[in-house]
């Protein structure tokens, strides 16, 4: 087990290094942040002085090594735009991103999985066709439009929910539903597809022929095997949700990491971009590790550890 864990850790290290190198070079290729940091009438000398002070005149590999060395010591530098430690900004926003991602994932799974199962079991029925049409609709609907519509209906017209911001459970409902809808659609289609495949297998026929109730056949025998692909996709989607919800965050003024990193890119806030990318990469890798561990629980035939 230790060997496996060590192997995974090693993989994680070089994945993180690779991501940090790629993101470092790309953000530096986007241009010079010093121009944005000084007023319009700053002289050429002032620009050069600041560039020198921030180390932007050093060769790029030197800048990267400096960043990597500091990152190893837990120092991610100060945001050029906000002028406070980059990690502080991320830690302020991360709980909001985790909250939104978790809520969207929960809504999506709670709604989509039963729909997917029922659609598979009652294939060809009106319910099946209706839910797949709904799934297509959910996948196709732009987040931006959906978000605005939800605000117009539930906040402006009905006055049931706050328009934007974060603070109470009520603030969480609309953004997580808006985000969860496309996930719902994806999970419903996936669940249906996998369930259809599993339900056609021999062991299911055997279970039915033994006289087991259909409910037990589906939930206990079939669904467990459908979980593996579902868990895989859910794990990947969770990682994407953490950094990729900038549209929802913008519409609902949700103080998450997605909007923070997009603004940082536009502002060429190198330290903040690099810190966010690293943190999200670590979380993504951790989530995938958890997913891999879950496989062992879901399917005892899967084991990463050598037999003694």
């Amino acid at each position: 087990m230790l060997q496996y864990l060590f192997k995974r850790l090693w993989h994680t290290v070089y994945v993180i290094i690779g991501i940090s190198v790629i993101s470092f070079f790309f953000i530096h290729l986007s241009g010079d942040p010093v121009m944005l940091m000084l007023p319009g009438d700053a002289s050429h000398q002032e620009i050069e002085d600041l560039r020198q002070q921030l180390g932007f005149n050093d060769p790029i590999y030197v800048q990267y090594l400096r960043f990597a060395w500091q990152a190893l010591r837990g120092e991610f530098g100060q945001s050029l735009y906000y002028k406070i430690p980059a990690m502080q900004l991320i830690l302020e926003r991360l709980p909001a991103s985790l909250e939104l991602a978790a809520a969207a994932m929960l809504i999506a799974l709670v709604v989509a999985v039963p729909i997917g199962i029922i659609s598979a079991v009652r294939r060809g029925s009106l319910l099946d066709m209706g839910s797949m049409f709904g799934a297509l609709f959910g996948l196709s609907m732009p987040h931006f439009w959906l978000g605005i519509m939800l605000i117009m209906i539930f906040s402006v017209r009905l006055g049931w929910l706050p328009t934007s911001g974060r603070g109470t459970l009520a603030h969480l409902i609309m953004p997580s539903v808006a985000l969860g809808l496309s996930l719902m659609a994806m999970f419903a289609r996936l669940t249906r597809s996998v369930m259809l495949e599993v339900l056609s297998l021999d062991y299911i026929r055997t279970a039915r022929s033994k006289g087991l109730k259909e409910r037990i056949v589906v939930s206990k025998h079939a669904f467990k095997n459908a979980l593996i692909p579902l868990v895989t996709v859910a794990g990947m989607q969770f990682g994407f949700l953490l950094g990729g919800t900038v549209i929802i965050e913008t519409v609902f003024a949700w103080p998450g990491v997605g909007r923070l990193v997009v603004q940082a890119i536009f502002n060429r806030d190198y330290p903040l971009v690099q810190a966010v990318v690293l943190v999200l990469a670590v979380i993504f890798v951790a989530v995938n590790f958890i997913v891999d561990m879950l496989y062992m629980y879901l399917d005892p035939q899967i084991s990463y550890f050598e037999d003694k």
């Binding site: 605005i148 605000i151 117009m152 906040s155 402006v156 006055g159 706050p162 328009t163 934007s164 911001g165 913008t250 519409v251 609902f252 003024a253 909007r259």
Partner: peptide, 18 residues
């Protein structure tokens, strides 16, 4: 002071009294 980058959300907040 609050911030909302999306204009439609800001206007909705004004119309709802938020």
């Amino acid at each position: 002071f609050k911030a909302s980058p999306e204009e439609a959300s800001r206007i909705a907040a004004l119309l709802t009294g938020e």
